[in-house]
């Protein structure tokens, strides 16, 4: 995925012309974000090897519970004597997969509906735009909470529900891009040669509409991770005993006066991850948006 973005990036960038200030494709913010996310991704994939303990193994003896961070337990232990570091490591899996899969779902829905809407216009367009307005009317987080309560809280439902409730912004974005791109010569040219509508949409217009989509999607990954943590914090997300950053926080909040490590580490993990995605998103915007470039240059 990262390679894919980088590739489009280069192709597009060389079209837009070069600008010495941004000539390094890896702008500093993108680089910082990518490094952090890569480390996170490695931790998630290699969780069994990175974790120093079984994340579910309890030790209820008084001396094992709520231990402060030490060489044995890097991030200390929780109220049930479980190793917080190992739980955090497994929690990375949850956070990243929810972030990516939820955004992937909203990307598919948003890009498809936005594309169809912008390309065909007319009644199809007004129909889809009404739907978008309906989506905008609901406060998303409460909508998600409501649906999750209904469907039952588990990780799959969380991903799907976040995905299906957060496509409206992307849909509008893609529609706007399509509206301007469908009048471009190469689109007319493809149509004149008898290329089918679906191919024109997906091979000609879409790849040229992707720059702002990448930016928005990257920012959304951070948002989805935040929503998942909040849901887990409220007990509507990943269910205990499975570890997620949000439910580690929940368990920690009762001991916040003396066991700071139970809230500090998951809190920091959420903060840094969301921040990294935002930095990548903002960095991408900076490099991909020609208007922004002019203003700076």
């Amino acid at each position: 995925m990262v390679l894919g973005i980088g590739y489009r990036f280069i192709a597009r960038y060389s079209i837009l012309g070069t600008n010495s200030e941004h000539n390094t494709i890896m702008n500093k913010r993108i680089l910082f974000g990518l490094i952090i996310i890569t480390i996170m991704a490695l931790v998630a994939i290699l969780a069994p090897f990175v974790a120093t303990y079984d994340p579910l193994e309890m030790d209820l003896s008084p001396e094992a519970r709520l231990q402060a961070p030490s060489a044995q337990h890097l991030f200390g232990t929780d109220n049930l004597g479980r190793d917080v570091f190992s739980r955090m490591v497994y929690g990375t899996r949850i956070s990243l997969s929810v972030g990516f899969i939820a955004v992937f779902i909203s990307l598919i829905v948003g890009v498809f509906l936005g594309g169809v809407s912008g390309y065909y216009g007319g009644k199809v367009d007004s129909g889809i735009m009404r739907l978008v307005e309906v989506m905008y009317c609901f406060p998303t987080f409460f909508l998600i909470m409501m649906v999750i309560t209904f469907l039952g809280p588990n990780i799959v439902n969380v991903m799907v529900v976040i995905g299906f409730t957060s496509w409206a912004g992307l849909c509008r974005l893609v529609r706007a891009e399509f509206l301007s791109l469908r009048e471009r010569d190469f689109v007319h040219s493809a149509k004149v040669q008898g290329v089918s509508d679906m191919r024109v949409i997906f091979r000609h217009i879409l790849p040229n509409a992707m720059a702002p989509v990448y930016v928005s999607a990257t920012l959304s990954v951070g948002g989805a991770i935040l929503v998942e943590s909040a849901l887990s914090f409220l007990g509507l997300g990943v269910q205990i005993p499975t570890a997620s950053w949000g439910n580690i926080l929940t368990a920690g909040k009762n001991y916040i006066d003396f066991a700071w490590w139970l809230t500090l580490f998951p809190g920091m993990a959420i903060l840094i991850t969301v921040l990294s995605f935002n930095m990548i998103g903002e960095g991408l915007r900076e490099v991909l948006d020609p208007k922004l470039k002019e203003r700076k240059g």
Binding site: A11, I15, R184, D185, S189, V192, Q193, G194, V195
Partner: peptide, 30 residues
């Protein structure tokens, strides 16, 4: 008919091709 029986070439060669697709692919696509 479009492209098969009747081919068409536009005025502007600079905008008639998709900037992010190889030209060979664009010809092959037809």
């Amino acid at each position: 008919i479009r492209g098969f029986d009747i081919g068409m070439v536009f005025q502007e060669p600079f905008t008639a091709l998709n900037p992010v697709m190889k030209v060979g692919d664009q010809v092959g696509e037809v």
